[in-house]
């Protein structure tokens, strides 16, 4: 029995929901980052500027020169509040939009998952492919870590890793669907997942790595920062998924009456 068009979602309506979810998720991530991330960022910046100040301490004219060289374009106070909120909000907005597009493609095309089930699948898959795996292959670094000479290469590889990982995840879902026709669903999903992990493992082994943490940098501070970074990204994905799911169910409940009438 054909279902009427208003029983499905439109890409436009999904995008609006995704952007709203993205903003909310971004603000939640800002809250997490401000509370759990900023202390480690602040401590790392303290380490960054401390040795330089010592170098110039002996000369009477040097400190003025030093201050001039490190003149702040944006103050720390703005960076850790408005700047951080803008960054997480903008990134949340972007991820929310992409989340909606991914949902539009996935819903009704990966088995018989319900709308909420599809949201969970996109959310978990997105976090693993776009955040967790890139985090594990190229762990993020706090201020005072990383040599300026390799920033181009590191940026390219970080973005490339996110792109490749997402592409491979999509490919593995596609292969999983194909395999599901031959094996049962669990075996197909397992094979597709193992395939993804193996290719990522090979990539991680083949691609260049960067060991740029200074020996004097406190290991506990590095751990705190990286944990906070992963937590910020997890908060973002969880926030987007939850809000998107709620907005979706609301819209669906309103539409479900017309669906039942036309389907019955």
């Amino acid at each position: 029995m054909p279902l009427s068009d208003d029983a499905t979602f439109s890409v436009r309506a999904l995008l609006v929901r995704g952007l709203i979810a993205g903003i909310v998720g971004g603000l939640l991530a800002f809250g997490f980052a401000a509370v759990f991330g900023e202390p480690s960022v602040e401590r790392a910046i303290g380490l960054e500027s401390a040795p330089a100040a010592h170098d110039h301490g002996d000369h009477a004219t040097a400190p003025a020169e030093h201050e001039h060289a490190e003149e702040e374009v944006v103050s720390r106070g703005v960076q850790r509040t408005l700047g951080l909120a803008t960054a997480t909000g903008a990134y949340g907005l972007a991820l929310g939009g992409l989340f909606a597009l991914a949902f539009a493609v996935a819903y009704g095309r990966i088995g018989r998952l319900s709308p909420r089930g599809t949201v969970v699948a996109v959310g978990v898959g997105g976090f693993v492919a776009a955040s967790l795996v890139p985090f594990l292959v190229y762990p993020p670094n706090p201020p005072a870590v990383g040599s300026p000479g390799t920033i181009g290469e590191r940026t390219g590889l970080a973005f490339g890793m996110i792109g490749l990982s997402v592409l491979l995840a999509v490919l593995s879902v596609y292969c999983g669907r194909k395999l599901a026709a031959r094996f049962d669903g669990w075996v197909a999903t397992l094979l597709a997942g193992v395939g993804y992990v193996i290719v990522i493992g090979v990539l991680a082994a083949v691609l260049p790595g960067f060991d740029e943490v200074p020996p004097s940098f406190p290991a506990s501070l590095l751990w705190d920062f990286r944990l906070a970074s992963l937590g910020t990204q997890l908060t973002l994905w969880a926030g987007i998924s939850l809000v998107f799911g709620v907005l979706l169910e609301r819209g669906l409940r309103r539409e479900s009456r017309s669906l039942m009438v036309t389907a019955g």
Partner: peptide, 27 residues
């Protein structure tokens, strides 16, 4: 950071903490 479309440093400086905590290479 690695690439620059807008001149200056203010974009980098403004989103600086977010860039670090969202897992991107900063400098």
């Amino acid at each position: 950071g690695a690439v620059s479309l807008v001149s200056g440093e203010w974009v980098h400086e403004f989103v600086h903490d977010g860039r670090h905590l969202l897992g991107f290479p900063c400098h």
